[in-house]
Amino acid sequence: MIRLRSEASRGMALSAPATLYVGLLVAAPLGILVVYSFWSQTYVSIDRSFTWENYSSALTDPLVRHLLVRSVWIAALVTAATVVLAYPIAYFIAFRTRYKTLWLLLITIPFWTSYLLRVFSWKLILGFNGLMNSALMALGLIDEPLEFLLYNEFAVVLTLAHAWAPFAIMPIYVSLQKIDPSLLEAASDLGCSKIESFLRVTLPLTVPGIIASCLIIFIPTVGDYVTPALVGGSDGKMIANLIQVQFGAANNWPLGATLSLLAMVSVGLVAGGFVVVSNLMARRIR
């Protein structure tokens, strides 16, 4: 009993520094954002009297609403595109190749290179005078550079689907690996076709992996700054770009704090709703 108690207290003591550090840096900034969001900016100084002004102006401003909705929309598109593109790869690695370790390594290496540089690279590929256009023209497939490649939603979705690839592949791969092969044998013994057994056995069993991938991608994407700034143009701007302006050029920190909180609440609501709905759907398929 004494040994047990000392084990518990040692565990707490050892994990305390990391827990406190992360916990403090989650709670304190959040608290201060909330406080700031009820203050207001008067030219260079902060007016510390309580006001709902930031929330009412942010929520009624069509630009803010537009950017919030677009950020959530783009993040949803990115999530869907990344997961749909990644699922076959996870399936391939789990069931169709003997060189699992090699494939997993090949897929994670690009992720470890600088995110900023990868986004920058997409800008060079998709640009008006860029790689894609010059290659297509050299091959004689087009006469004039394509303009729709860069500075729009498509560019943002493509770039982020590239950036998040391993985050989608890994959780799905893990959930595919866990599937008991005898379940698939049973399905085929009971007369399921390959497609049927995929839809009714494999897919429902990988729902936890899919949900994990979706959350890991969706949550950070809503607040992504670099990709919309570099390849988004004016059609691809997202809420993070507006937040950055408030903390930079516009110098309106209380509004910036409000926007950050609104972005977080939107992410939370959409992500929570998504988890509930997809769990319900998974139950129905089964």
Partner: peptide, 17 residues
């Protein structure tokens, strides 16, 4: 948790803090 918090929110709130 730090893995999934959007970067802009971490950055802006840390700056304010």
């Amino acid at each position: 948790l730090p893995l999934v918090v959007p970067g802009i929110i971490v950055a802006s709130s840390f700056l304010v803090l």
